[in-house]
Design a protein around this nucleic acid. Structure first.
Length: 543
DNA sequence: ATAGGGTTAG
């Protein structure tokens, strides 16, 4: 039996914080400190360790004089762990003495909430304040800069070389991820070589790098010569093959995995969903359940994607029940997947139920519901949801506008479509892409304003693609605009669909000789008409 | 008291 003063520090935390919690009237923090010969700072640290931020904060606020920099830093850490970035920031601003840990902790906070601009600002302030960045600083800011400030990676690299921190495994793997983003293979390898004592994460970073850059063979060689492998190495390899569109090799390695977890199962299922091989995706999901692996929100959202892809309403609905049971239902991404699944399976009502119950919505959630309305032909509702979206301060992006414009197409709302097409750049700085032009051409074409459609195609700042021509052609076909279609033929576009359209128009006008001439041309070029297909939806019990 | 790998949505 150890004496009380031989009990390790770590075990005390639980003990004395319990003591304080259970009998706050009998014993004060001050007495606890006395009994256990703890400083206020020690006690604060123990509270933070236990996740008891409120007790820590109370003690901290009541004893300002006995709080040193370590206590301040612990408080900042505690607030960040509880997602209270605002409070953390206030403490950071108020603290009398900041050391490198204070700065690093704040940087990690901005990294956690994914605010690269604040992260960048704080890093500049840190340098201005004369605090020298260390290995913690570099690994944090590099990972936080990815996708936003990728260009800074080489410059940070040079600072790192200057400070002699290049051999640190954390710094090194962050740099490797940075160079992977920059698609710079040779720098990736340089950084790898510079890390003198490599650990498994270092090797895994190389594996990710090779796979992301498409060097499949090098990735496999790396995998085969790695000193040790963990489940992450295996999953990286499997996912790498999926990303490089080699699903069979992915499955081969997947089957060879010594053990699998949620992540590896989800990655493999996702691979099949991307290939639109929904049968295999669902079979694999069943095997996953049989192997006693619980799905998480990643898995569910992947499967909902599968349901949306092939209109499996029943399975989607069952998954929804599972999600409700699992308590994952307030997950933002998952709700958005559910909305998408329901709209694509024809149940816009359920989609709205979920959408309206969401506490926080982002651009993607709004886009799914607007897109859902569009798909259901509810043009006016799509526009009113769009109005609500902008009024709530959410900024529309290019996808929002694709959905808004396609709603206008379905509803034949030419005026509204034109309005939004123009205001997207003027009000929100969203430049029109190919898809937006396609929608507008489609809109004009269906409304019979083929002249406007043609003018738009001519004015487009880039070369129209098949989609744009297809929309124009469809519009012409709908209104039998022989001249325009024939014009397309003269322009040298020889898609067989143009000839097919000409056949249709000639037939309608009764010029059979022309129609036959066109048909022969199609056959001559080996063109064949696509088989037509459609599905009819019956609704029972509702009008 | 501070740092790193693999899976999710429109």
């Amino acid at each position: 039996m150890p004496k009380w003063n031989q009990i390790p520090r770590a075990s005390w935390g639980v003990f004395h914080s319990q003591l304080l919690l259970q009998s706050p009237k009998l014993i004060s923090p001050a007495s606890v400190c006395l009994i256990f010969t703890l400083s206020t700072t020690d006690l604060i640290q123990d509270y933070i360790h236990d996740g008891n931020i409120n007790a820590a904060r109370k003690l901290f606020d009541e004893n300002p004089a006995s709080c040193n920099t370590v206590a301040w830093n612990s408080m900042i850490t505690g607030h960040i762990r509880h997602n209270q970035m605002q409070s953390a920031h206030e403490l950071f601003d108020k603290m009398p003495m900041r050391d490198v840990v204070s700065w690093n902790t704040m940087l990690s906070g901005f990294n956690k909430i994914k605010d690269p601009h604040k992260l960048h600002q704080l890093f500049l302030q840190m340098n201005k304040a004369g605090e020298r960045p260390n290995q913690f600083t570099f690994s944090t800011i590099i990972s936080g800069f990815l996708n936003t400030f990728d260009v800074l990676v080489p410059q940070l690299h040079s600072l790192i070389l200057h400070s002699g921190l290049h051999s640190n495994v954390f710094v090194g793997s962050a740099l490797m991820r940075g160079y992977t983003h920059l698609m710079d293979r040779s720098s990736l390898c340089r950084v790898f070589d510079d890390i003198l004592t490599k650990d498994i994460s270092t090797w895994n970073a190389l594996l990710v790098g090779y796979m992301d850059l498409g060097f499949i063979a090098d990735a496999q060689i790396t995998f085969d010569m790695m000193p040790e492998l963990n489940i992450i190495s295996w999953t990286t390899l499997v996912d790498g093959y999926i990303k490089n569109r080699n699903i069979n090799q992915a499955r081969h390695m997947f089957d060879k995995m010594p053990q699998k977890n949620v992540v590896s199962w989800t990655a493999m299922i996702k691979g099949y969903v991307q290939q639109e091989n929904y049968t295999n995706a669902i079979q694999l999901f069943i095997s996953m359940l049989n192997s006693n692996t619980s799905p998480n929100h990643f898995t569910f959202s992947t499967l909902l994607d599968a349901c949306a892809g092939c209109s499996m309403f029943l399975l989607g609905n069952q998954l929804h029940s599972c999600i409700l049971k699992s308590g994952l239902c307030q997950e933002l991404v998952l709700s958005t997947s559910l909305i998408d699944m329901y709209t694509k399976c024809g149940d816009i009502k359920s989609a709205f139920t979920i959408f309206d119950s969401m506490k926080t919505k982002n651009t993607v959630s709004w886009n799914s519901i607007i897109g859902g309305c569009a798909r259901h032909g509810l043009a006016h509702q799509a526009l009113s949801e769009f109005k609500k979206m902008t009024e709530s301060g959410m900024k529309p992006d290019h996808v929002t506008y694709i959905n808004v414009l396609s709603a206008c197409v379905h509803g034949g709302l030419v005026k509204e479509g034109e309005h939004h097409f123009h205001s997207m750049v003027e009000r929100y700085g969203v430049e029109a892409e190919m898809k937006h032009y396609t929608c507008m051409v489609d809109l004009y074409g269906k409304a019979g304003e083929v002249d406007k459609a043609v003018r738009l195609v001519k004015e487009m700042p880039f070369e129209p693609d098949v989609g744009v021509w297809g929309a124009l052609l469809a519009g012409c076909g709908l209104h039998s605009c022989y001249e325009v279609v024939n014009g397309l033929q003269i322009l040298g576009r020889d898609y067989s669909s143009i000839y097919n359209m000409l056949i249709k128009i000639h037939s309608e006008k009764g010029s059979w000789s022309h129609a036959i001439e066109m048909r022969d041309k199609v056959i001559e070029r080996g063109g064949r008409k696509q088989k037509a297909a459609s599905w009819v939806e019956f609704s029972i019990g509702e009008s």
